[in-house]
Amino acid sequence: MNCDWLKENLSAYVDGEMNFITRWRIKRHLKECLECSKELRQLEKIHKLSKLAILVSPESHFYDRLKAKLPKVETIEHKKNRVFENIWIALPQGGKAAILVGIALILFLSVIYPRLSSTSLNIDRFEKEYLLSQETLTCVGEPATSLILTSE
C-alpha cells in the first residue's frame, strides 16, 4: 500500500465505504505513516466542522406556515370552521355586539391595561435579581437559579 493510493481513497475510508480487509490495511499504514495520518485528521476535521456549519434549524413555526399553503385536504379543520361560521351567522345582532365588546375588553385587560399602569411590577423580577447576586458567590448552576421561580 503506498501513500498516493491511500490519499485518493482516504475520503472513502472516512465515509466508512471500505471493506473490512482494506480498512484493516489502511489502519496499519496510518499507524506508521505520519504524513497520511495527518491527512486523515484533516479530513475528519473537515467532516466534523462542515456538519456543524451546515446543520441549522429553519425559521420558527415552519409547519404552521407550511400548513397554510397546503392544498385543501385538511378536512377536519374545515368542518370546524363551518360550525363556527354557522353559529356566528345565527347570532342576533345584540349577541354579536356582546361578543365583540367581550373580546375588546379581554384584549384591553390582558395587553393594554398592564402597559398603561407601568408602575405595577411583579415580584419575580426582584427575586431573580436577588438570585443572580447570590449565584455569583456560589458559582455555576449551584442553586438552580431563576428557573425555580418561573416554575412555581
Binding site: 399602569s117 408602575t119 405595577s120 411590577l121 411583579n122 415580584i123 426582584f126 435579581e129 436577588y130 447576586s133 447570590q134 458567590l137
Partner: peptide, 19 residues
Amino acid sequence: TNGLEVIVLFQRPSAKIAM
C-alpha cells in the same frame, strides 16, 4: 454580603408589586 450570602435591598418610587 457576609461572604457566603447576600441581602439585597431594592427601592424605587412608589409602585404596585404583585406578589
